[in-house]
């Protein structure tokens, strides 16, 4: 869907993107991650043709990015807002028209969306009379009303209470099921694991990690496991196939966090433990995206 090739972007003495490349697959949810100032917004602005790269190119469905693609992109910026003095319905219709819809079509779809998000009765209200959450909903409608192939959401859940965040999340997933590709920029990792198929991690203008969420997590496996058994204090001898990392004892249970030694297998571990204890729980510790994020970023520093 989107191929980003070797993008370089510099602002007066400050490098925002240095040679960033990535592929965004059609119909997937793509996470664009990175700490503040990593270059996420710069990249998004380039895809939106708000700015142009100093070098490198962006392909949209194999075609060099141009003005015709604007109607196929929906963008919810992090810094968002609407004309305060304008009626909300009128405003959504206006924004939809700027994306190329006819007035009649824009009105029809806006009504439909307002009904769906249960903000119908607010149609004639001015933006300044609405609550923040209500404004965000309206803004979301403005982003997706022209049924874009590509939806770019920059921190879409800020400003929503948990209930409305859930509503919006479900809408995003539904749009994705109906074929829209979604680029999702955030530094809130829990939503990444939930939503994204694949991610790219930017830091200090460089791409430092990318791939499918599952694969990345596998890649960051360290052979760490948690084993829980009844009773207390199994003495771990030095020829054990693992090294104990930590041990917590609660009531009649012990939880042991351990790392398998190089070249040994999970089965060796179980063989060793079985005669010594009554195992009640055994699982692998796979790092969360949050841990991966912190690890990758701090490694680069």
């Amino acid at each position: 869907m989107i191929s980003i090739r070797n993008i370089v972007k510099e602002y007066a003495g400050h490098r925002a993107l240095s040679g960033v490349s990535m592929e965004i697959e059609k119909g997937k949810v793509f996470g664009l991650l990175g700490p503040n100032g990593a270059g996420k917004t710069s990249l998004i602005r380039i895809i939106n043709q708000i700015t142009a790269p100093d070098s490198g190119e962006v392909l949209f469905n194999g075609e060099k990015l141009n003005q015709h693609h604007i109607a196929q992109i929906g963008y919810l910026p992090e810094e968002r807002g609407l004309y305060k003095k304008m009626e909300i319905g009128e405003q959504i219709v206006y924004l939809a028209q700027l994306k190329g819809l006819s007035q009649a079509e824009a009105k029809l779809r806006a009504r439909k969306w307002f009904k769906k998000l249960e903000i119908e009765s607010w149609w004639k209200k001015k933006i300044e009379e609405l609550s923040k959450g209500m404004q965000q909903k309206a803004q979301f409608v403005a982003t997706v009303i022209h049924e874009p192939e590509l939806i770019i959401l920059d921190e879409p859940f800020t400003g929503f209470d948990p209930v409305n965040a859930e509503i919006i999340k479900n809408e995003i997933l539904e749009l994705n099921r109906n074929g829209a590709t979604i680029i999702f920029s955030t530094h809130r990792m829990e939503s990444v694991e939930e939503l994204c198929d694949s991610i790219t991690l930017l830091n200090l203008s460089h791409k430092i990690l990318d791939g499918k969420v599952k694969e990345i997590r596998n890649q960051f496996r360290t052979g760490t496991y948690i084993i829980e058994y009844e009773g207390q204090g199994v003495q771990v001898s030095s020829d054990a196939p693992f090294t104990a990392l930590s041990e917590t004892i609660a009531d009649d249970h012990t939880q042991l966090k351990l790392r398998i030694k190089e070249g040994r297998k999970v089965n060796d571990l179980l063989h060793y433990m079985l005669p010594l204890s009554n195992i009640s729980k055994f699982e692998e510790v796979i790092p969360t995206m949050n841990e991966i994020f912190i690890q990758a970023v701090s490694k680069q520093r």
Binding site: I50, I73, Y75, P77, E79, R80, Y83, K84, L95
Partner: peptide, 16 residues
Amino acid sequence: IEEKVSRIIEVMISSV
């Protein structure tokens, strides 16, 4: 200034 302050500007220039 109004467009800047109300932060609609980025939405606008992703369309025009």
